[in-house]
Design a protein around this nucleic acid. Structure first.
Length: 340
DNA sequence: TTCCTCCGCCACTTTACGTCA
DNA sequence: CGTGACGTAAAGTGGCGGAGG
């Protein structure tokens, strides 16, 4: 008797995730969803494309997004997502910012407000009422070398820190004066606003960055860093979800393997206890992968019992119904909406 | 085509802050 | 109330790759 066991799916295609995908669109979203179709299961931590390009073509990519900080952090009576103005979405609105925004609060980050280059050239008022935020009261003296985020060109490629410091207005002079850098916590309103913005775009082009910084009265560098850290958190969360999913898959497969081994042992025991089977023509149970009907065919001959028992599990069919090994879909983070 | 510079992103690390026992 | 451990967010650092001159 020939035993055929098949768990469905093309065995040559199984575990195709081991082959490195060259397609950027092969995100983990795509790979994970494929696991429900057959026995393949994959985890891909696809790196997004170059983001500055993707900003312009947000529609076609699969940037993943996870809501780690929903607006629940802010009372809904203070800020409504649908009411949050995004400067790049409403360029013509007259300062739809937070001065008249959530609860009428001014999101002043105890810092000098962000000034766009053109505004600086126009001699715009740079003063900012030092409010309130209660998060940090650190006040910096901004040096005259304050620039917007383009500081790298002033200093050099590799000087991220100097670039950031210059951007923040923290100069060597400050350090010499003993003004240690202080880390600022964003207010809940600012975080919520950035979160909503992240839902729209998980990357920012310079225009968006500056607009957002201006609106939140943050430095562009702060907005940039926040988005970088936010993407890192999203990726970390997705990795955790993927690991959890694969863990469950592994457990399921282990259990299934255990069940099949037991089934095989029972059949072997049955065969040895009923030697008459030896004289019968071998029968192969195969299952059509499409209609899942079982077809019984009679082999020409099976010379020995050893041949029957040596059948491997991969080309032997015992299962009359393909078990659902992955009843749970892989958890996914949400992809941001396409740019409007 | 090659080289160089600028720029943005990522991975990893450091640091400051908030919370809690 | 002070303190240390701990977690987390903000920021620093270095490398990589794309775009453009």
């Amino acid at each position: 008797m020939e035993l055929a066991l098949s768990l469905g799916g093309d065995t040559q295609k199984s575990f195709s995730f081991l082959k490195k995908s060259t397609n950027n669109s092969s995100s983990h979203e795509e790979l994970l969803t494929s696991s429900n179709k057959d026995l393949r299961f994959c985890m891909g931590l696809g790196k997004s494309n170059t983001t500055h390009e993707l900003d312009e073509n947000n529609g076609g990519r699969k940037i993943l997004h996870l809501d780690l900080l929903p607006l629940s952090a802010v009372p809904l009576n203070q800020i409504m997502p649908s009411q949050i103005p995004f400067p790049w979405l409403s360029q013509n609105t007259a300062e739809p910012g937070l001065t008249n925004g959530p609860a009428g609060k001014v999101l002043d980050m105890n810092r000098r407000p962000i000034v766009l280059e053109e505004e600086a050239e126009e001699g715009a008022d740079l003063s900012s009422p030092n409010s309130n935020s209660g998060v940090s009261s650190f006040q910096m003296e901004f040096s005259s070398i304050y620039r917007n985020g383009n500081s790298r060109s002033l200093i050099g490629k590799r000087d991220h820190s100097e670039a950031g410091d210059t951007e923040r207005g923290v100069s060597d002079e400050d350090e010499n004066n003993g003004l240690a850098r202080k880390k600022l916590r964003l207010t809940k309103e600012q975080s919520a606003f950035l979160e909503e913005s992240f839902k729209e775009h998980n990357t920012l082009n310079p225009k968006q960055k500056f607009a957002l910084a201006k609106q939140l009265k943050l430095r562009p560098r702060q907005v940039e860093v926040w988005f970088q850290n936010r993407r890192a958190r999203t990726k970390l969360k997705q990795t955790e979800l993927d690991c959890e999913y694969l863990k469950r898959c592994c457990e399921t497969l282990t259990e299934e393997n255990r069940r099949l081994q037991k089934e095989l042992q029972e059949l072997r025991a049955l065969k040895s206890s009923q030697p008459l089977y030896m004289q019968l023509p071998a029968t192969t149970l195969t299952m059509c992968p499409s209609c899942e009907r079982v077809a019984t065919t009679t082999a020409a001959a099976v010379p020995t019992a050893a041949a029957a028992t040596s059948a491997t599990a991969t080309n032997t069919t015992l299962s009359l119904a393909k078990p659902n090994l992955f009843p749970f879909p892989p958890a996914q983070v949400h992809a941001p909406q396409a740019a409007s």
